[in-house]
Every structure is written in structure tokens, then in C-alpha cells.
Design a protein around this nucleic acid. Sequence first.
DNA 1: ACAAAATACTACCGATCGGTCGTTTGTAAA
DNA 2: TTTACAAACGACCGATCGGTAGTATTTTGT
Lengths: 179, 179
Amino acid sequence: MKVSKDEIILAARELFREKGYAGASMQDLADRVGLRKASLYMRFPNKEALVPEVLEMTLNTTFSQPGISSPDWKTAYEAVIRSIAAALTDRHRCVGFHLAYGIGDDTPLAKQAVRDFFRSHLDRMTDILARAMPRETATIIAADDLARLEGATLHLALFDDPTSMKRAVDLALGPVRSH
Amino acid sequence: MKVSKDEIILAARELFREKGYAGASMQDLADRVGLRKASLYMRFPNKEALVPEVLEMTLNTTFSQPGISSPDWKTAYEAVIRSIAAALTDRHRCVGFHLAYGIGDDTPLAKQAVRDFFRSHLDRMTDILARAMPRETATIIAADDLARLEGATLHLALFDDPTSMKRAVDLALGPVRSH
DNA sequence: ACAAAATACTACCGATCGGTCGTTTGTAAA
DNA sequence: TTTACAAACGACCGATCGGTAGTATTTTGT
């Protein structure tokens, strides 16, 4: 194999993040990894099938950062927030968010994958917070913290401005520290 | 004229919001307004030229809501926040955000229009807040409030869940009320 | 009523889209 | 070294993309 499957998924992630689902072409993906378009269909049955793989890889790396599996909930939550924020700050956009906006009912497998992607984020964040507070409260905090991080990518994507993301991290971590 | 220019812009806005710039086709737009594709090029020189018009119309309606031009800054700011939140809650997505994510360097006029769109939002919000606080503080609050509103569309688009948006409004307005 | 101008139309352009087919190439077991 | 299988390939498919040319139709000014 000239190119590993992970390399293709990685390139597909960049493509989806930058151009969205509709704007990403298989030809462009083939060019980026140095294969012919037809060869991509050896590994993936179609374009839609790339989406679950991209999101699964992203989810895994996000939640594989050190500290996230700490028994101390403060340590774990801070690690999650920082892991997400670091990825978003680095790339200026969120693949999942771009796909969430752009994917329609014509690609149901991709749509479900996007839902699972964010549901996993929310569940894992909620589980950590629920160690120290009622689950109901944890659910709300997780949802709002994630929304704030995602929203801060607006300033990154448009104005190359990371300060809003930094404040989003501080605001998510402030109450945790003083808990 | 079978169809007014504003109708076309309105339909284009829906299209961009749902499918993004790359995913929106001129044929689809023509179908929605009941024209032939070629007739669209009577009013707009090309696809890219739709973007500034769409965003200008959106900006105008957003900031034409009652209360926004109130001399009382609290009234004005609340009206702005509620105007933005109402539009996002209704449509589940933000056109500007979708375009901000999807538009690349190949469409520079559209890119600049998106930047202007959000810059106007931020400037107008900052101007209102600056009546009651240092401009530096106002800039930060405006940026973070807008980011939070945009981020809350994640829960709307994916899970049809408006609660995060409601909390975003409350959080943006809470400090204002108790000021 | 008539001419001029604006608008919408049919038909088409080359390029690119996602995807498939049949063949060649590389590799690993025998 | 031969055999067998997977991987990569060039060439191609129908559909759709943004956009244009020329013509018909409707509106407008006189």
C-alpha cells in the first residue's frame, strides 16, 4: 500500500474541515494523498463513508490526551477542555461543526455519525462533571461549555483571533477550579 | 419581473444556510424562486455576488428590530441579543457562520463580505455596551456573547435543542440586567 | 398603437462531480 | 520461479456544476 488508511482519513479530515462535505471532492483528496481517485474506492465504498471514519479518529485522539482518564474530575475535565480547545485553536475550525452544518438528509449515515460524534463529546464531559454535581447540572454545563468552544472558532476562522477561545477555556475552567 | 430581487436573495440565504456556499447550486436557487437558471444572471453577475447581498439583507433585518436604537443601552443590547437569538432559533443555523466556515480564498469578495458582516455585528454590539463601560471591556463581552450564540446553534442544528440558546441569551443578558 | 428596453427563455459550453470497469503492477506465499 | 491476490492504475460513465449566447416575451415610454 502506497498510503495507509489513516493517512487518507487524516487528509479527508483536513478537506472536510476546510471545505465542508459538499466542497470536498474525491479528486482533491486523491491529489493530497498522492493516489488516483479510483484507488480511494479500494478503501472506502463512497464519499459518505469517509465521514464516520474521520469523526471516529478525531474523537479518539481528542479523548486520548493525558489526564482525561484521571480519577480526579477536575483534572479530567480540564484535560478535555484543553484538548478540544487546542485542536480548534490549531486548525481554526471544527470538522464536526462544519459537517453538522453542511450534511443533509441525503447522506443519513454521515448525519448519524456527526450526531454520535457530538453526543459522545457531551456524554463524556457530562460523566466527568457528574462525579461532583447532579447529573442534570452536569449536562447543562457540558453543553454550554462545548457550545462556547465551538462558537469561539468564529473569531479564529474569520479574524485569526484566539483570544475568545482562550476566554472560553478560562470560563469553562474557572468554576471548576473554585469548586 | 416575475420575481423580485429580494425574493431571490431570501431564497439564496436559505440555500446558503442549509447547504453552505459550495453545496448551494444556481439551479437549485432557480427552482426555488421559479425562474430558469440563466435568468438569475440578469440580476447577479455570478454566484459569488449573492453572498454580499444575502449578508447585507440579513444584517439590516437583524438590526432593524424594535428597541435596538433605544438610547438606553440595556434596552438596546437586549434587543440585539434577542434579535440574533430569535433568528438562529428559528432557522437552526447561521448563514454567516456557515459561509465563514466554507468560503475560501478563491472567492475573495464573498470572504470579505462575511468578515464585514460579523465585524458589523461586533462593532454595533460593542458601541452599545461602550455607553456603560470601557470600550476594551465592551469589545470582549460582545465577542464572547456572539460566540456563545453562534455556538448554541450546534445543539439546534444537531439535536433540535433550543435550551442552550435560551441559556446563552440569559447569560448574555444577566450581567446587563444587574449592572 | 408602436418602438425600445428590460426580462425570461431554450439551448448549449467546457469543467468537474461521484463512481465504475478492465487492466497493469507490486507483493507475498508456494 | 511460478501462482495468486490485492492494490493502483488509465479511461471512461452519466449527471451536474457555473456560466454564456441568442431568441422570444413582456413591460415601459411615447
